[in-house]
Design a protein around this nucleic acid. Structure first.
Length: 344
DNA sequence: AATCCTCGCAACCGCCGTCGG
DNA sequence: GCCGACGGCGGTTGCGAGGAT
Protein backbone atom coordinates (compact mmCIF):
# COMPACT_ATOMS: atom_id res chain seq x y z
CA UNK A 1 0.00 0.00 0.00
CA UNK A 2 2.16 2.82 1.25
CA UNK A 3 1.34 6.42 1.04
CA UNK A 4 1.96 8.71 -1.85
CA UNK A 5 5.21 10.63 -1.86
CA UNK A 6 4.93 14.06 -0.37
CA UNK A 7 6.50 15.59 -3.45
CA UNK A 8 3.86 14.29 -5.84
CA UNK A 9 2.00 17.54 -5.60
CA UNK A 10 2.60 19.29 -8.87
CA UNK A 11 4.59 22.46 -9.05
CA UNK A 12 6.94 21.69 -6.19
CA UNK A 13 10.55 22.13 -7.06
CA UNK A 14 12.95 19.20 -6.98
CA UNK A 15 16.65 18.86 -7.51
CA UNK A 16 19.60 20.88 -6.25
CA UNK A 17 18.98 23.69 -3.83
CA UNK A 18 19.90 27.25 -4.71
CA UNK A 19 21.70 29.55 -2.25
CA UNK A 20 18.53 31.63 -2.00
CA UNK A 21 16.49 28.61 -0.97
CA UNK A 22 19.13 27.65 1.55
CA UNK A 23 19.04 31.13 3.00
CA UNK A 24 15.25 31.09 3.34
CA UNK A 25 15.34 27.73 5.07
CA UNK A 26 18.11 28.73 7.45
CA UNK A 27 16.43 32.01 8.28
CA UNK A 28 13.12 30.38 9.01
CA UNK A 29 14.52 27.61 11.18
CA UNK A 30 16.75 29.99 13.09
CA UNK A 31 13.75 32.16 13.91
CA UNK A 32 11.04 29.57 14.45
CA UNK A 33 12.59 26.13 14.61
CA UNK A 34 11.47 23.60 12.06
CA UNK A 35 8.20 22.66 13.78
CA UNK A 36 6.13 20.64 11.37
CA UNK A 37 8.19 19.88 8.32
CA UNK A 38 5.04 19.50 6.30
CA UNK A 39 3.98 23.03 7.08
CA UNK A 40 7.43 24.58 6.95
CA UNK A 41 7.83 25.19 3.21
CA UNK A 42 4.75 27.38 2.94
CA UNK A 43 5.65 29.31 6.07
CA UNK A 44 9.22 29.79 4.90
CA UNK A 45 8.21 30.76 1.39
CA UNK A 46 9.77 27.74 -0.24
CA UNK A 47 8.35 25.88 -3.19
CA UNK A 48 9.58 22.56 -1.83
CA UNK A 49 8.02 19.65 -0.03
CA UNK A 50 8.62 19.30 3.70
CA UNK A 51 10.63 16.19 3.24
CA UNK A 52 13.03 17.90 0.91
CA UNK A 53 13.43 20.73 3.43
CA UNK A 54 14.10 18.33 6.27
CA UNK A 55 16.68 16.46 4.23
CA UNK A 56 18.41 19.63 3.16
CA UNK A 57 18.55 20.85 6.73
CA UNK A 58 19.66 17.65 8.40
CA UNK A 59 22.20 16.67 5.78
CA UNK A 60 23.65 19.98 4.73
CA UNK A 61 22.53 23.18 6.42
CA UNK A 62 22.56 22.22 10.08
CA UNK A 63 25.15 24.41 11.82
CA UNK A 64 26.84 21.56 13.68
CA UNK A 65 27.70 19.56 10.59
CA UNK A 66 31.35 18.70 10.24
CA UNK A 67 32.69 18.85 6.71
CA UNK A 68 35.85 17.54 5.16
CA UNK A 69 37.73 14.28 5.08
CA UNK A 70 36.99 11.55 7.55
CA UNK A 71 39.81 11.09 10.03
CA UNK A 72 41.37 7.65 10.59
CA UNK A 73 39.66 7.58 13.96
CA UNK A 74 36.31 8.22 12.34
CA UNK A 75 36.99 5.52 9.76
CA UNK A 76 37.88 3.13 12.54
CA UNK A 77 34.68 3.96 14.35
CA UNK A 78 32.60 3.43 11.23
CA UNK A 79 34.24 0.06 10.60
CA UNK A 80 33.78 -0.95 14.21
CA UNK A 81 30.15 -0.01 14.30
CA UNK A 82 29.34 -1.34 10.86
CA UNK A 83 30.79 -4.70 11.80
CA UNK A 84 28.45 -4.81 14.74
CA UNK A 85 25.38 -3.02 13.42
CA UNK A 86 25.39 -3.43 9.68
CA UNK A 87 23.85 -0.64 7.62
CA UNK A 88 22.38 1.19 10.57
CA UNK A 89 23.66 4.52 9.35
CA UNK A 90 21.66 6.69 11.66
CA UNK A 91 22.83 4.73 14.69
CA UNK A 92 26.41 4.88 13.48
CA UNK A 93 26.01 8.61 12.95
CA UNK A 94 25.13 9.11 16.58
CA UNK A 95 28.67 7.98 17.45
CA UNK A 96 30.25 10.47 15.06
CA UNK A 97 29.41 14.00 16.15
CA UNK A 98 28.88 16.33 13.23
CA UNK A 99 28.56 13.57 10.65
CA UNK A 100 25.22 12.74 9.06
CA UNK A 101 23.93 9.29 8.30
CA UNK A 102 23.86 10.21 4.63
CA UNK A 103 27.48 11.29 4.67
CA UNK A 104 28.56 8.14 6.46
CA UNK A 105 26.55 5.99 4.09
CA UNK A 106 28.13 7.70 1.09
CA UNK A 107 31.59 7.36 2.57
CA UNK A 108 31.02 3.72 3.23
CA UNK A 109 29.77 3.03 -0.27
CA UNK A 110 32.50 4.97 -2.03
CA UNK A 111 35.51 4.23 0.15
CA UNK A 112 35.41 1.73 2.95
CA UNK A 113 33.34 -0.88 1.18
CA UNK A 114 35.73 -0.90 -1.75
CA UNK A 115 38.73 -1.18 0.49
CA UNK A 116 37.26 -4.17 2.28
CA UNK A 117 36.50 -5.84 -1.02
CA UNK A 118 40.03 -5.16 -2.23
CA UNK A 119 41.36 -6.83 0.88
CA UNK A 120 39.16 -9.83 0.20
CA UNK A 121 36.70 -9.17 2.96
CA UNK A 122 32.97 -9.36 2.59
CA UNK A 123 31.83 -5.82 3.38
CA UNK A 124 28.62 -7.04 4.94
CA UNK A 125 29.99 -9.74 7.21
CA UNK A 126 33.50 -8.28 7.61
CA UNK A 127 34.76 -11.81 7.15
CA UNK A 128 37.21 -12.98 4.51
CA UNK A 129 35.39 -14.02 1.40
CA UNK A 130 35.75 -17.63 0.37
CA UNK A 131 34.66 -17.73 -3.26
CA UNK A 132 37.60 -17.77 -5.64
CA UNK A 133 36.88 -14.65 -7.66
CA UNK A 134 36.02 -12.42 -4.77
CA UNK A 135 39.14 -13.66 -3.04
CA UNK A 136 41.37 -12.75 -5.94
CA UNK A 137 42.90 -9.74 -4.19
CA UNK A 138 43.51 -11.93 -1.20
CA UNK A 139 45.24 -14.49 -3.39
CA UNK A 140 47.35 -11.82 -5.02
CA UNK A 141 48.37 -10.67 -1.58
CA UNK A 142 49.39 -14.24 -0.88
CA UNK A 143 51.44 -14.20 -4.02
CA UNK A 144 53.08 -11.03 -2.79
CA UNK A 145 53.84 -12.78 0.44
CA UNK A 146 55.56 -15.55 -1.46
CA UNK A 147 57.53 -13.00 -3.44
CA UNK A 148 58.65 -11.28 -0.27
CA UNK A 149 59.78 -14.57 1.17
CA UNK A 150 61.75 -15.35 -1.96
CA UNK A 151 63.36 -11.96 -1.82
CA UNK A 152 64.46 -12.58 1.72
CA UNK A 153 65.69 -16.06 0.97
CA UNK A 154 67.77 -14.69 -1.87
CA UNK A 155 69.35 -12.41 0.69
CA UNK A 156 69.64 -9.70 -1.90
CA UNK A 157 68.20 -6.81 -0.01
CA UNK A 158 69.71 -4.59 2.67
CA UNK A 159 69.15 -5.60 6.25
CA UNK A 160 66.75 -2.80 7.05
CA UNK A 161 64.65 -3.82 4.11
CA UNK A 162 64.70 -7.43 5.19
CA UNK A 163 63.47 -6.38 8.57
CA UNK A 164 60.77 -4.26 7.05
CA UNK A 165 59.84 -7.03 4.67
CA UNK A 166 59.54 -9.36 7.59
CA UNK A 167 57.24 -6.85 9.20
CA UNK A 168 55.24 -6.79 6.00
CA UNK A 169 55.12 -10.55 5.89
CA UNK A 170 53.80 -10.72 9.40
CA UNK A 171 51.31 -8.09 8.42
CA UNK A 172 50.18 -10.09 5.39
CA UNK A 173 49.97 -13.18 7.50
CA UNK A 174 47.71 -11.35 9.85
CA UNK A 175 45.51 -10.26 6.99
CA UNK A 176 45.41 -13.55 5.18
CA UNK A 177 45.53 -16.39 7.57
CA UNK A 178 42.53 -17.89 9.21
CA UNK A 179 42.83 -20.86 11.47
CA UNK A 180 40.57 -23.87 11.52
CA UNK A 181 38.00 -23.86 14.31
CA UNK A 182 39.50 -26.19 16.84
CA UNK A 183 42.88 -27.42 15.73
CA UNK A 184 46.19 -25.74 15.78
CA UNK A 185 48.26 -26.41 12.72
CA UNK A 186 51.75 -25.35 11.97
CA UNK A 187 52.82 -23.80 8.73
CA UNK A 188 56.20 -25.41 8.94
CA UNK A 189 57.25 -25.44 5.33
CA UNK A 190 56.41 -21.86 4.54
CA UNK A 191 56.82 -20.23 7.90
CA UNK A 192 59.40 -22.28 9.72
CA UNK A 193 59.81 -19.70 12.45
CA UNK A 194 56.19 -18.98 12.99
CA UNK A 195 53.42 -20.72 14.82
CA UNK A 196 50.75 -18.75 13.04
CA UNK A 197 48.01 -21.14 12.08
CA UNK A 198 46.23 -20.75 8.78
CA UNK A 199 43.11 -22.59 7.72
CA UNK A 200 43.14 -25.58 5.44
CA UNK A 201 42.34 -23.65 2.29
CA UNK A 202 45.07 -21.19 3.00
CA UNK A 203 47.53 -23.96 3.66
CA UNK A 204 46.59 -25.62 0.41
CA UNK A 205 46.96 -22.41 -1.46
CA UNK A 206 50.26 -21.58 0.16
CA UNK A 207 51.48 -25.05 -0.61
CA UNK A 208 50.51 -24.50 -4.18
CA UNK A 209 52.37 -21.25 -4.46
CA UNK A 210 55.47 -22.73 -2.94
CA UNK A 211 55.53 -25.56 -5.40
CA UNK A 212 57.49 -25.44 -8.59
CA UNK A 213 54.31 -25.65 -10.57
CA UNK A 214 53.74 -21.99 -9.80
CA UNK A 215 55.91 -20.98 -12.71
CA UNK A 216 52.90 -20.31 -14.88
CA UNK A 217 51.82 -17.77 -12.36
CA UNK A 218 55.07 -15.93 -12.47
CA UNK A 219 53.60 -13.18 -14.61
CA UNK A 220 50.96 -12.23 -12.12
CA UNK A 221 53.45 -12.54 -9.31
CA UNK A 222 55.86 -10.25 -11.04
CA UNK A 223 53.26 -7.74 -12.04
CA UNK A 224 51.58 -7.50 -8.72
CA UNK A 225 54.72 -7.80 -6.70
CA UNK A 226 56.60 -5.21 -8.63
CA UNK A 227 53.97 -2.62 -8.13
CA UNK A 228 53.72 -3.74 -4.57
CA UNK A 229 57.40 -3.71 -3.78
CA UNK A 230 58.70 -0.93 -5.94
CA UNK A 231 55.96 1.61 -5.53
CA UNK A 232 54.67 3.77 -2.81
CA UNK A 233 54.41 0.93 -0.37
CA UNK A 234 58.14 0.46 -0.09
CA UNK A 235 58.62 4.17 -0.04
CA UNK A 236 56.19 4.41 2.81
CA UNK A 237 57.95 1.51 4.51
CA UNK A 238 61.21 3.32 4.11
CA UNK A 239 59.65 6.49 5.46
CA UNK A 240 58.28 4.47 8.35
CA UNK A 241 54.90 5.97 7.62
CA UNK A 242 53.13 2.62 7.65
CA UNK A 243 52.11 1.90 11.18
CA UNK A 244 52.21 -1.71 12.26
CA UNK A 245 51.96 -1.04 15.91
CA UNK A 246 48.33 -1.86 16.41
CA UNK A 247 48.27 -5.16 14.57
CA UNK A 248 47.88 -7.82 17.20
CA UNK A 249 50.80 -9.86 15.94
CA UNK A 250 53.14 -6.95 15.68
CA UNK A 251 52.74 -4.81 18.69
CA UNK A 252 54.62 -4.96 21.90
CA UNK A 253 54.76 -6.92 24.03
CA UNK A 254 53.77 -9.54 21.47
CA UNK A 255 57.05 -11.22 20.58
CA UNK A 256 58.00 -11.45 16.94
CA UNK A 257 60.20 -13.81 15.02
CA UNK A 258 62.21 -11.13 13.31
CA UNK A 259 64.43 -8.31 14.44
CA UNK A 260 62.76 -4.97 14.03
CA UNK A 261 64.49 -1.69 13.80
CA UNK A 262 62.32 1.29 13.16
CA UNK A 263 63.39 4.83 13.56
CA UNK A 264 61.27 7.15 15.58
CA UNK A 265 60.37 10.55 14.28
CA UNK A 266 63.27 12.01 16.18
CA UNK A 267 65.62 9.69 14.40
CA UNK A 268 66.29 7.37 17.31
CA UNK A 269 66.31 3.70 16.55
CA UNK A 270 63.77 1.59 18.33
CA UNK A 271 64.61 -2.09 18.52
CA UNK A 272 62.38 -4.74 19.89
CA UNK A 273 63.50 -8.09 21.16
CA UNK A 274 65.17 -10.15 18.52
CA UNK A 275 64.42 -13.68 17.49
CA UNK A 276 61.25 -14.08 19.37
CA UNK A 277 58.32 -15.94 18.01
CA UNK A 278 55.01 -14.48 16.99
CA UNK A 279 52.32 -16.60 18.52
CA UNK A 280 48.71 -16.61 17.50
CA UNK A 281 46.33 -18.53 19.65
CA UNK A 282 43.38 -20.36 18.29
CA UNK A 283 40.15 -19.11 19.67
CA UNK A 284 37.06 -21.14 20.22
CA UNK A 285 33.63 -20.64 18.74
CA UNK A 286 32.79 -17.87 21.13
CA UNK A 287 35.86 -15.86 20.42
CA UNK A 288 35.56 -12.53 18.68
CA UNK A 289 37.07 -11.82 15.27
CA UNK A 290 40.80 -11.12 15.18
CA UNK A 291 40.35 -7.41 14.83
CA UNK A 292 38.36 -7.04 18.01
CA UNK A 293 40.49 -4.97 20.25
CA UNK A 294 39.91 -3.14 23.51
CA UNK A 295 42.14 -0.17 23.05
CA UNK A 296 39.96 1.79 20.67
CA UNK A 297 36.69 1.04 22.27
CA UNK A 298 33.86 3.35 21.38
CA UNK A 299 30.92 3.77 23.65
CA UNK A 300 29.09 0.66 24.75
CA UNK A 301 28.95 -1.88 21.98
CA UNK A 302 25.44 -2.60 20.74
CA UNK A 303 23.95 -5.98 21.63
CA UNK A 304 24.26 -7.27 18.10
CA UNK A 305 27.97 -7.63 18.64
CA UNK A 306 27.63 -11.11 20.03
CA UNK A 307 26.01 -12.35 16.85
CA UNK A 308 28.97 -11.30 14.78
CA UNK A 309 31.44 -13.66 16.36
CA UNK A 310 32.50 -16.73 14.49
CA UNK A 311 34.42 -19.84 15.14
CA UNK A 312 38.02 -20.17 14.26
CA UNK A 313 39.30 -16.69 14.64
CA UNK A 314 42.91 -15.87 15.04
CA UNK A 315 43.53 -13.80 18.09
CA UNK A 316 46.69 -11.97 18.84
CA UNK A 317 48.21 -12.44 22.25
CA UNK A 318 45.76 -11.08 24.78
CA UNK A 319 45.03 -8.00 22.78
CA UNK A 320 41.38 -7.99 23.44
CA UNK A 321 39.02 -8.77 26.22
CA UNK A 322 35.51 -10.00 25.82
CA UNK A 323 33.91 -7.35 27.97
CA UNK A 324 35.17 -4.38 26.10
CA UNK A 325 35.44 -5.14 22.45
CA UNK A 326 35.96 -2.95 19.51
CA UNK A 327 37.34 -3.73 16.13
CA UNK A 328 40.69 -2.62 14.91
CA UNK A 329 41.13 -2.80 11.19
CA UNK A 330 44.54 -3.05 9.68
CA UNK A 331 46.23 0.24 8.88
CA UNK A 332 46.15 -0.56 5.18
CA UNK A 333 42.52 0.42 5.16
CA UNK A 334 43.46 3.95 5.94
CA UNK A 335 46.24 4.28 3.46
CA UNK A 336 46.06 5.47 -0.07
CA UNK A 337 44.94 3.05 -2.74
CA UNK A 338 48.41 2.52 -4.12
CA UNK A 339 49.03 0.16 -1.25
CA UNK A 340 46.64 -2.39 -2.62
CA UNK A 341 47.58 -4.86 -5.30
CA UNK A 342 46.51 -3.71 -8.70
CA UNK A 343 43.82 -6.13 -9.78
CA UNK A 344 42.42 -4.20 -12.69
C1' DA B 1 40.79 19.87 -27.77
C1' DA B 2 37.16 16.73 -27.58
C1' DT B 3 35.10 12.84 -25.89
C1' DC B 4 34.48 9.24 -22.73
C1' DC B 5 34.66 7.29 -18.24
C1' DT B 6 34.73 7.12 -13.28
C1' DC B 7 33.79 8.73 -8.90
C1' DG B 8 31.75 11.28 -5.12
C1' DC B 9 27.95 13.29 -3.24
C1' DA B 10 23.50 15.58 -2.83
C1' DA B 11 19.01 14.51 -3.33
C1' DC B 12 15.14 11.55 -4.19
C1' DC B 13 12.19 7.50 -3.44
C1' DG B 14 9.62 4.25 -1.05
C1' DC B 15 8.95 1.79 3.03
C1' DC B 16 8.42 1.52 8.05
C1' DG B 17 7.33 2.79 12.84
C1' DT B 18 5.01 5.88 15.81
C1' DC B 19 1.49 8.76 17.34
C1' DG B 20 -2.87 10.95 17.78
C1' DG B 21 -7.69 11.36 16.49
C1' DG C 1 -8.50 -1.33 16.70
C1' DC C 2 -8.24 1.45 12.54
C1' DC C 3 -6.46 4.97 9.75
C1' DG C 4 -3.96 8.81 8.22
C1' DA C 5 -0.19 12.11 9.04
C1' DC C 6 4.33 12.53 9.89
C1' DG C 7 9.25 11.81 10.69
C1' DG C 8 12.93 8.83 9.93
C1' DC C 9 15.68 5.47 7.59
C1' DG C 10 18.21 2.92 4.02
C1' DG C 11 18.67 2.13 -0.88
C1' DT C 12 19.24 4.20 -5.16
C1' DT C 13 19.76 7.68 -8.69
C1' DG C 14 21.52 11.41 -11.33
C1' DC C 15 24.53 15.08 -11.97
C1' DG C 16 28.84 17.53 -11.98
C1' DA C 17 33.82 17.47 -11.57
C1' DG C 18 37.96 15.61 -12.70
C1' DG C 19 40.83 12.24 -14.90
C1' DA C 20 41.89 9.21 -18.79
C1' DT C 21 42.12 8.33 -23.58
Amino acid sequence: MGRSPCCDESGLKKGPWTPEEDEKLIDYINKHGHGSWRALPKLAGLNRCGKSCRLRWTNYLRPDIKRGKFSPEEEQTILNLHAMLGNKWSTIATHLPGRTDNEIKNYWNTNLKKKLIQLGFDPMTHRPRTDVFSSLPHLIALANLKHLLENLNNNNSPSWLQNDQMAKIENLQYLLLQPPPHDQLSMVSTFPNSTITPDIDTINFLNSITSSSMKENQLILNQSSNSFLDGSFLQAMHDHSIPFSHLPGLQQPTPCSYPMSFENKDGKTNNNNNNQVCTFNIANENSPPPWLHPSLSTSSPPPLAANRHHAGDVVGNSNFNQDNQSIVWPPELFMDDSFFPDIS
